[in-house]
Simulated scan of single mutants.
Amino acid sequence: MVASGTKPDKATFISLLITCSHSGFIEKGREIFESMRSIDGLPYEIEHVSCIVDILGRARYLTEAK
């Protein structure tokens, strides 16, 4: 998507984060979450935060998820 010049939007990030959560890609999910703000300049919304909490919770990083 990025290679084609298309900029990801908030829905794209939600989809990516959900995929990471269900696939067990903890580190990739963290990278995507961080890049959302640092690279793409998009603010975190409740849906994005919920996804990262789900990723961390499934990985048993409960303190960090909290």
Rank of each mutant, 00 (worst) to 15 (best):
S4G: 11
T12G: 08
K66W: 04
F13S: 03
I26S: 08
M1I: 12
I52L: 11
I26P: 00
D54A: 05
R37G: 00
S23V: 13
V2A: 13
F13K: 06
M1F: 09
D9H: 12
E31I: 11
V53W: 02
F25M: 05
L56S: 06
P8Q: 02
M36A: 07
T19I: 10
F25C: 10
G29W: 08
G29E: 01
I32G: 03
L16H: 00
S50K: 13
P8W: 05
L16K: 00
H48N: 10
I32A: 01
V53P: 02
V2E: 15
C20N: 08
G41W: 06
L62D: 00
C51H: 07
E31Q: 13
L56N: 06
P8I: 07
E47T: 06
E64F: 03
I55E: 04
A59W: 04
G29A: 10
E34T: 07
I26T: 15
S15Y: 03
I55K: 00
E47C: 06
I39K: 13
E45H: 13
S4F: 09
E45I: 12
L56W: 01
E27K: 07
Y44N: 07
L56T: 04
T6C: 15
H48D: 14
I14G: 05
I39R: 07
I46S: 13
C51P: 05
K10C: 03
Y61S: 07
T6I: 15
I55Y: 01
E34C: 06
T63E: 13
V49T: 11
I18Q: 14
S35V: 00
K28D: 15
I14H: 05
I52V: 15
T6L: 15
G41Q: 09
I18G: 08
D40Y: 15
S50T: 04
S21Q: 01
R58K: 12
L62N: 05
R60T: 09
F25I: 08
P8K: 02
I39F: 04
A59C: 03
A3S: 07
I32R: 00
M1K: 10
T12H: 14
L16P: 06
E31N: 07
S4K: 14
G41F: 11
E64C: 01
A3H: 13
K66F: 09
E34W: 04
M36R: 01
D40P: 01
L16A: 15
G5K: 05
D54T: 04
A59T: 04
T19V: 13
H48F: 09
R60H: 07
H22M: 05
V2T: 03
I14Y: 04
I26N: 02
